[in-house]
């Protein structure tokens, strides 16, 4: 594997994998313990509207995703808390709406949409350096916000009602958390694509839960798992010339299944 590191695209890929592991390691823990996997999947898929917007405006699609995913996060959070619809129904509607907007905008764009598959399924081997800089900035924002609101986020996840009684603005804070999920999705799109994002948000966090009952340790451990598995996935995808995003996800899920199986047998 060492001789691979002489290629710049491999170094970029590994760097992107590590940056992705940091954001999904931290935010994925919240997604798993607060049990908001479905709404996270919804935000991710609805973000496809942002890809369409990027193509339509002729800008870097990632820059289209950034505002669009934040907008989907805010509207999903708001609708799921305030509307009279059941939460999962409201999320399901917005999920499909965002994707549909994306499909219409792509079809309205004259000419052929290059790299569309890259945004849907990821291709970590083609990450340009400019996107790595963007990932670095988003990671820094995520770390800063989580550091500032750590105790409030913990209370919000554990017992939203009690947090409210103790003066935490639970609804606002929940929206902040959903926005962090949106930022994480932007970081992850290059790595695994919109469709597979949910795997990186759940598998490393779920695995780390098996080893510790402390939220901070869970975060550190899932960052480590994410980094190891994404590097492994990159290597395998290069070796067998298969799509990197799907390989990373399969490596993660295979390890998790094996671990659960072994644990199930031994207990």
């Amino acid at each position: 594997m060492m001789e691979l590191l002489q290629y710049e695209f491999i170094r970029n890929a590994i760097m992107a994998g590590i940056l992705a592991s940091i954001s999904c390691g931290i935010i994925g823990v919240y997604v798993v313990v607060k049990r908001i996997v479905f709404i996270s999947g919804g935000i991710a898929h609805a973000s496809f509207g942002g890809i369409g917007l990027g193509y339509y405006l002729g800008i870097n699609p990632i820059l289209g995703v950034l505002p669009f995913s934040i907008a989907s996060a805010l509207s999903m959070g708001w609708v799921s808390k305030r509307s009279r619809l059941p939460e999962d129904t409201a999320i399901g509607i917005l999920w499909a709406m965002g994707m549909s907007i994306g499909i219409i905008l792509v079809s309205l764009t004259p000419g052929y949409a290059p790299d569309l598959m890259t945004y849907l399924f990821g291709n970590i081997l083609t990450v340009p350096f400019s996107d790595i800089v963007l990932m670095l900035v988003l990671d820094a924002i995520i770390i800063l916000v989580v550091y500032s609101f750590y105790k409030e986020f913990l209370a919000l996840c554990f017992d939203e009602e009690f947090a409210t009684v103790r003066g935490v603005h639970a609804e606002r804070l929940y929206l902040v958390m959903l926005c962090l999920i949106a930022l994480t999705i932007v970081v992850l799109i290059r790595v695994v694509g919109i469709i597979l994002v949910i795997a990186l948000l759940t598998i490393p966090a779920a695995m780390s839960r098996q080893f510790t009952s402390n939220l901070k340790k869970m975060m550190l451990l899932s960052i480590l798992f994410g980094a190891v598995f994404s590097s492994g996935g990159i290597w395998l995808s290069y070796l067998f010339d298969v799509p990197s995003g799907a390989t990373i996800v399969l490596v993660m899920s295979a390890v998790y299944l094996l671990y659960s199986l072994v644990k199930g047998i031994s207990s």
């Binding site: 313990v33 913990l154 209370a155 554990f158 017992d159 009690f162 947090a163 839960r209 510790t212 869970m218």
Partner: peptide
């Protein structure tokens, strides 16, 4: 609150839970 509404799998220690009672006394950040 009515006990039974909690997620017993939640990764949080006794100490962290009791400190939550102090949230109103410390500012954000």
């Amino acid at each position: 609150p009515q006990y039974s509404l909690f997620d017993l799998e939640f990764p949080v220690s006794v100490w962290e839970v009791v400190l939550m009672g102090r949230l109103g006394h410390t500012g954000l950040f």
